[in-house]
Simulated assay, not measured.
Amino acid sequence: MAARALNICVGDFGVITEAVWNHMTPGPALAGGEVDFEIAPDAHYLIQHSIIQNFAYTLEAKLIGERVYDDPASYSYRKLDPAEVVTPPMARAQLAPFLARATLD
């Protein structure tokens, strides 16, 4: 899951973000949902949708609330080519050199 586009507004009231989110999901995870197309069980799909988040803070910068608005009309689905799919083991292997150098110092 990742933000494809992100706008941020900061003010005395708090922070508002507007984002287009992308999710990569296997076909079987969409089964039983509200999609209006035939799902290929061996395929992965890109789900894209818009979210607005409103984080309210006090004047002392203490978080006092969060409201999230997910636009159901913005959902789109695209079947991914197998070459576009990154599995968790693939990501782990690609990130391993970076994670090996990471420290908590």
Rank of each mutant, 00 (worst) to 15 (best):
M1A: 13
A2T: 13
A2V: 12
A2E: 15
A3D: 14
A3I: 10
A3W: 14
A5N: 14
L6R: 07
N7Y: 12
I8L: 10
I8V: 11
V10K: 11
V10C: 10
F13A: 15
G14H: 00
V15N: 00
V15P: 00
V15D: 00
V15T: 00
I16C: 07
A19H: 10
A19Q: 11
V20R: 10
V20K: 11
V20T: 11
V20P: 08
W21H: 15
H23W: 10
M24T: 13
P26W: 03
P26M: 02
P28G: 03
P28H: 03
P28N: 03
A29E: 14
D36T: 05
F37Q: 05
E38K: 11
I39H: 03
P41A: 04
P41S: 07
D42F: 02
A43N: 06
H44G: 01
H44K: 03
L46K: 05
I47D: 04
I47H: 03
Q48D: 10
H49I: 06
H49L: 10
S50A: 12
I51L: 09
I52K: 11
I52Y: 09
I52H: 11
Q53N: 10
N54V: 00
Y57N: 04
L59T: 13
L59M: 15
E60S: 15
E60T: 14
E60L: 15
A61T: 06
K62Y: 12
L63Q: 02
L63S: 04
I64G: 03
I64L: 05
I64A: 03
G65P: 01
V68S: 09
V68A: 08
D70Y: 12
D71F: 01
P72K: 04
A73G: 11
S74H: 01
Y77M: 02
Y77L: 02
R78I: 06
R78P: 03
L80A: 01
L80H: 02
L80F: 01
D81A: 06
D81F: 05
P82M: 00
V85A: 04
T87I: 04
P89S: 03
P89Y: 04
M90W: 01
M90E: 06
A91H: 06
R92I: 13
R92S: 13
R92A: 15
A93R: 09
A96E: 10
A96M: 08
P97W: 02
F98P: 03
F98L: 07
L99V: 08
A102F: 15
A102G: 12
T103F: 09
T103N: 08
D105C: 08
D105E: 12
